[in-house]
Design a protein around this nucleic acid. Structure first.
Length: 223
DNA sequence: GACCAGGCACATC
DNA sequence: GATGTGCATGGT
């Protein structure tokens, strides 16, 4: 745990955290909101997810039993502002059905499972991919499951910590095997990478002001 | 009007 | 197994 990679990953974290501070991702929200948000935010700006969640709140549908009762069409209409609403209504429904059948809509029961078997279970649900599964585990279940996304891959690639062919699980493993199993750390780390990625590590690089600028990198490297 | 956003499934090669 | 495409709203 004191390899060069571990030290680098820790140094990245410290640099980002010192520059940007805590990100407060899903701070005061209930696990229910987090799970729904994790599905709704797929390829979608967070602002639009909030609108959809507000609709659910106003319809008093932010509740697993009510969600289970809603028709696919009613659900789709409520989450419309989040975009791709027909797809996401199906995905929410497939999660709810699974959650109902396996855990009787009881979050505590679901999160009693081991991280690895719960992750496997979530990945069997159509509409829950690796990033969404990890976001549910980490941000709703407070489990130490590192969340990887496109920004994470691009930042690590440009800093020569991974090669172009690295896939999701490989990148996830890089973090998990080189950092302590710390939920708070994983939570902030992913959120910080997203912020840095958005501001500084888009396809057209703008490294000015980037907290990771002082580390060796190649800003022109496209993925 | 193009491009993007806290992805995923499915088709095709 | 790699690559391309549809899904769809709202902000810049």
């Amino acid at each position: 745990m004191s390899s060069r990679t571990s030290q680098t990953l820790r140094a990245f974290y410290d640099a980002m955290y010192n520059a940007l501070g805590p990100q407060h991702w899903w701070p005061a929200q209930t696990p229910t909101e987090v799970i729904i948000g994790a599905i709704l935010t797929q390829n979608t700006a967070w602002r639009n997810v909030e609108r959809a969640i507000d609709n659910l709140k106003r319809a008093k549908a932010l509740d697993w039993k009510r969600l289970h009762e809603l028709s696919l069409e009613e659900l789709a209409e409520l989450i419309r502002p989040a975009g791709t609403f027909n797809v996401k209504a199906r995905r929410l429904k497939s999660f709810i059905q699974w959650f109902h059948d396996r855990f009787d809509l009881d979050l505590d029961r679901m999160f009693e499972m081991s991280v690895s078997s719960l992750r496997e279970g979530l990945l069997e649900i159509p509409g829950i991919g690796r990033e969404t599964a990890d976001a549910i585990l980490l941000y709703a279940g407070q489990k130490p499951s590192f969340v990887v996304d496109a920004y994470t891959a691009r930042i690590l690639y440009r800093h020569h910590l991974i090669d172009r062919s690295a896939d999701y699980d490989e990148i996830k493993e890089l973090f998990e095997s080189n950092l302590p199993d710390d939920v708070k750390l994983f939570n902030e780390y992913h959120a910080l990478l997203v912020d840095v990625g958005k501001k500084h590590c888009r396809p057209r690089a703008r490294c000015e002001g980037c907290p990771l600028r002082r580390f060796e990198h190649d800003a022109e490297r496209e993925d």
